[in-house]
Computed example of a mutant assay.
Amino acid sequence: MSFSIAGKTAIVTGAAHGVGLAIARAMVEAGANVVFVDRDEAALERETSVLREADGPVRHFAGDLRERLTITNLLSFTVDAFDRIDILVNAARQVRVSDPLDHEDDSVERLLDQNLMSALRLSQAAAKRMIKQAEPDSTAPLGSIINLSSIAARLAHPELLGYSVSCAALDQMTRSMAVALAPKRIRVNAVAFGSVMSASLKQSLSEHDEIREAILHCTPLGRIASASEVSDAVQYLASDASAFVTGQVITVDGGRSLIDPSHVAAH
């Protein structure tokens, strides 16, 4: 079975920075038509200009996906550019520190809107487009939706209450949407990851050596993932190689979420 996504059209949100950018770049390199989406228009222009100069089939779209009109405009923009939508990667995520005991802290509500509801609304709209563009009497797969989640969804981090809750909800959304869209031949999966060597993490590690030591100590594979290792998992789920995989949350964390903290402390 082929891992190819050549010729397919993908929308990747959160594509101006970090893991989202790595995923979008990898899809362009794999021969897909890719729409880079983010609120940071300057960064989008900077990142896509080089790819366009190399004749890469890329476009960029800036907007706030919490707004329903933005989602409508994004889908119209993508179809106008590439005629169809085959892959959606919901990679736009926000992390905020929460105070679980502060009843005036609205971070849970904000992160549910950003990390869950925008992904849900965009997935619903993209799925409708995928169904609409289906060829009559065809039994071929119609599309793949991939959500980026986190191992925080299954671990207790009180200071990341809003983020953890939004990721847990995103995982459940993934499973529910997978069942709902399976009869329409659209697959929905997620990739949950732990620490990835992003620019922000590099900055933290340069300032706090103890963070690196703590991460490595809790990770059986003994290292921090590269963004490409997350993008590889996403490409697998986007391709026909995963044609019988749906409703799954694939974990890319080097085994970190498997470890009992008491075991780590004892060693």
Score class of each variant (00 low, 15 high):
residue 3 F to R: 12
residue 4 S to W: 05
residue 4 S to Q: 12
residue 5 I to Q: 02
residue 9 T to R: 09
residue 9 T to A: 15
residue 9 T to H: 10
residue 15 A to L: 05
residue 16 A to F: 01
residue 17 H to K: 15
residue 20 G to T: 08
residue 24 A to M: 13
residue 26 A to D: 13
residue 29 E to H: 13
residue 34 V to Y: 14
residue 43 A to I: 06
residue 45 E to N: 05
residue 57 P to H: 14
residue 59 R to W: 13
residue 64 D to S: 10
residue 64 D to L: 07
residue 70 T to K: 13
residue 70 T to R: 12
residue 78 T to W: 14
residue 82 F to W: 08
residue 83 D to P: 00
residue 84 R to W: 14
residue 87 I to K: 06
residue 89 V to I: 12
residue 90 N to W: 01
residue 90 N to I: 00
residue 90 N to G: 07
residue 94 Q to D: 07
residue 97 V to D: 07
residue 98 S to E: 10
residue 99 D to Y: 04
residue 111 L to N: 05
residue 113 D to V: 04
residue 120 L to K: 04
residue 125 A to T: 00
residue 129 R to T: 08
residue 130 M to T: 00
residue 131 I to V: 13
residue 131 I to Q: 11
residue 135 E to W: 05
residue 137 D to L: 10
residue 138 S to V: 01
residue 139 T to Q: 14
residue 142 L to K: 09
residue 143 G to W: 00
residue 143 G to R: 00
residue 151 I to N: 06
residue 151 I to C: 03
residue 155 L to Q: 15
residue 155 L to V: 07
residue 155 L to E: 14
residue 157 H to W: 11
residue 161 L to Y: 03
residue 163 Y to K: 06
residue 167 C to G: 02
residue 169 A to M: 02
residue 172 Q to W: 11
residue 188 V to I: 03
residue 191 V to T: 04
residue 197 M to E: 04
residue 201 L to K: 05
residue 205 L to C: 05
residue 206 S to M: 10
residue 207 E to V: 02
residue 213 E to V: 07
residue 219 T to H: 05
residue 222 G to D: 01
residue 226 S to K: 11
residue 227 A to P: 09
residue 232 D to N: 14
residue 239 S to Y: 11
residue 240 D to F: 12
residue 245 V to E: 03
residue 257 S to P: 10
residue 258 L to K: 09
residue 265 A to Q: 10
